[in-house]
Design a protein around this nucleic acid. Sequence first.
DNA 1: TTAAACATGTAACATGTTACATGATTAG
DNA 2: CTAATCATGTAACATGTTACATGTTTAA
Lengths: 173, 173
Amino acid sequence: MSLRHAVLGMLASGPASGYDLMKRFDLSLGKVWTATQSQVYGELAKLAADGLAEAAAEGPRGRKEYAITGAGRDELLHWMTGVDPEPPRRNAMLLRVFFLHLLPAEQAVAYLRRQADLAAQRHAELAALADLAEAGEDGQEARFGRIALEHGLRLHALGQEWAAWAEDQVGRA
Amino acid sequence: MSLRHAVLGMLASGPASGYDLMKRFDLSLGKVWTATQSQVYGELAKLAADGLAEAAAEGPRGRKEYAITGAGRDELLHWMTGVDPEPPRRNAMLLRVFFLHLLPAEQAVAYLRRQADLAAQRHAELAALADLAEAGEDGQEARFGRIALEHGLRLHALGQEWAAWAEDQVGRA
DNA sequence: TTAAACATGTAACATGTTACATGATTAG
DNA sequence: CTAATCATGTAACATGTTACATGTTTAA
């Protein structure tokens, strides 16, 4: 149930509307947890029903701002420190690797080379995002965003190196 | 719809029952794509209904073996070479990192240290699995399993190094 | 005046998890 | 004879995606 905690975590920095939250999902947060508009509005309503958030203010155009409650903060803190995060259990790229023996060696190699290219591309995109972040605000919130981003950078570098190594392994068949 | 392709991929190595497939999900394949028993049996029925697999034989205890069809092979090959794999878009561990500024520095550091420990533990578990695999059969199928496993090993090493680096970053606050 | 941005919500469908329900065969 | 393993299936529920539906405010 981490969508709930993603929303709660953003609300913990101050009241926000569904529309505000979506912007954060589309920007930085979406790199580690995605959500659709319909999920965000739905979750906000449930959070309010469960007493973890409350409708705090109404603005123009039907805008509704929600604020985290004490119970919401408790729930968030419990999730952050009291429960070990589940590692991702699905990776479509590696699933294909398991079946690469079904392809002629030449196509298996092409697949691995393509993965190296994709990793390089994603690394470059993240690096561009990092540059933007560099120029932006600082403070504790930005610091941890930068730390998460560094994980992504290292991950894509790993992807590139691993794919090159794998290509070599297949070459020596 | 990768569950479908995970099942198809296993069927491509030879006919199998739902029970057989579950064993492979519980062992190696589950490291890159998980599935529950109820998903596997359901998917097998859908695959047969869609003409991508067919009930090939019946055994004792109601055992039903399924075999991949030509259309199934086409679908599998298209998925493997014609579509770029989607990168994972949800990481509960990194989501928490985004909200670490909500904790006192001391607890944020504890969180990061815990992640380093978990990564080390998972690395050791995978390494044990790798040793078993080493002793097992070889051939193309095992080779690619080993290549996927290497990715996991590198990933957990990265997790450890990154968490140590992050801890240091927070220390210098 | 009109396009872009702001703003929320619902319905239908797809996917995934947990729990329940049942029975056959084999090995000790 | 009895426990473990083999073997399949369904129902209820939770989560996630896509498409639709609607209306307001601001800036050019």
